[in-house]
Design a protein around this nucleic acid. Structure first.
Lengths: 230, 230
DNA sequence: TTCAACCGATGATATAAATCATCAGCTTAA
DNA sequence: TTAAGCTGATGATTTATATCATCGGTTGAA
């Protein structure tokens, strides 16, 4: 395996909680069909609507997940960072991908055949239970996003996105991002122009500072108030 | 147990798939702490933000689930009909409810302590695996709703709601509903006035017919086109 | 090297949708 | 039995947001 960056799954185990629930046999079957692949920025890991064959775990870089609509509009539903896996609901139902995954930057991912994975889920209850916890968190995040996108006006939605990026995605305050304004617009359900305009007003009001790919939140309490007031 | 309508869980088993995966011991422990409760229309089964103690299975009637925002706006994220259970993601994470459940009509529900339930999920992998399938379907439905609410204009969203009600909730074409126009507005992320206006234009164009609590879809292909075009 | 394509940015304009107001019919509570 | 409140309905008005157009800068491909 030319692209493989880890010798086996043990390295991953130290970081991705869910694999702690696997025994040696299970780990071996995962490892034996594991493939590590490198993606360049903008490359697609899998596409909405396509059949899902593999369980995907991100080992470096970052991936964005988005829904595509008929009218070519996108909505970003989440990001996946190392070491974490992409929960693909279609793997348990119609074997189709229901969103698209794209590398935001140079990214490496381990792929494991979803049949192997599925067998383990069905056999190992600690594993599937850990999986349940993970999905539950994701469901709760989806509720928050749905609430934000449908009930808040643009300033509240942009505030939500900026706080999310700083506090959940990058875990840093000035943070450097590879996301474009279009991506931020896709996260907050508006056009690129509107996202830029709102960010401009935030800059004018000294709520944030931007410099190239860097964004700094200067007044988090006020951003939180804007988020709360919608 | 005065309100109990079933003697034990076997009756439910015949209809709710997921319980087929339980053995006698597990069924007994579920049954022993089961309580059946009757709710009147509009009564709350549980409230967003409150601690979640019980696993809830609907045995008659119908329940609507909705998110509440600070500004008292609601968004309906789903309905639960007999015999099906309510997936409460908080049960696996922070032990809080993240949405509110309200009886749309006279409803009976079986409550089982979530600790008992949790133990079974952790011990019985067939059960938790079946649970995973269920949640996956729900996640996919959430994607569709998110896409509809953020990318489609009002006519498309109302068309989505009407098709959903007829084809997924009531499984009938003229169908009688206990949902108000406000509920339909809450399903489609708009104000009551806008929902009424769009439905009026649909009536004028002979797409639908309404008579009291009855709604009939007269031109489903065209409604589907409107849904697709957003 | 040049052309095409995308990005951030900004202004002018159009429009989708919310808000406000009103009214009639019906149910519920005092 | 009356008053209060909710529902469906409709019109007038306001406002939030998308769309369209343009521009300079950068990147990437031919």
């Amino acid at each position: 395996m030319a692209n493989s960056i880890e010798a086996n799954c043990l390295l991953c185990m130290q970081r991705s909680d869910i694999f702690r629930n696997l025994n040696d046999n299970e780990l071996h079957s995962v490892n034996s069909c594991r493939v590590s692949i490198k993606y360049h920025q903008g490359e697609i890991l899998f596409k909405q609507g396509s059949p899902c064959h593999d369980f995907v775990c991100i080992t470096s870089g970052m991936v964005k997940l988005y829904l595509e609509s008929e009218s070519d509009k996108r909505i970003i539903i989440g990001f996946v960072k190392p070491v974490d896996y992409i929960f693909v609901p279609g793997a348990f139902t119609d074997k189709r991908h229901h969103f698209t995954a794209v590398a935001c930057e140079e990214t490496t991912a381990c792929l494991v055949g979803s049949d192997v994975f599925q067998q383990i889920v069905e056999a190992n209850s600690a594993f599937s239970s850990a999986f349940l916890n993970k999905i539950s968190e994701q469901a709760i995040r989806m509720f928050e996003q749905l609430s934000s996108l449908t009930h808040k006006q643009m300033p509240g939605r942009i505030a939500d996105v900026l706080l999310c990026l700083s506090q959940k995605i990058y875990n840093a305050n000035p943070f450097v991002t590879s996301l474009s304004r279009q991506d931020i617009a896709d996260m907050s359900g508006m056009t690129k122009e509107s996202a830029i305009r709102i960010m401009k007003t935030f800059k004018d009001d000294n709520l944030i500072r931007t410099e190239g790919d860097l964004i700094e939140l200067l007044n988090i309490p006020l951003l939180e108030t804007i988020s709360r007031n919608g």
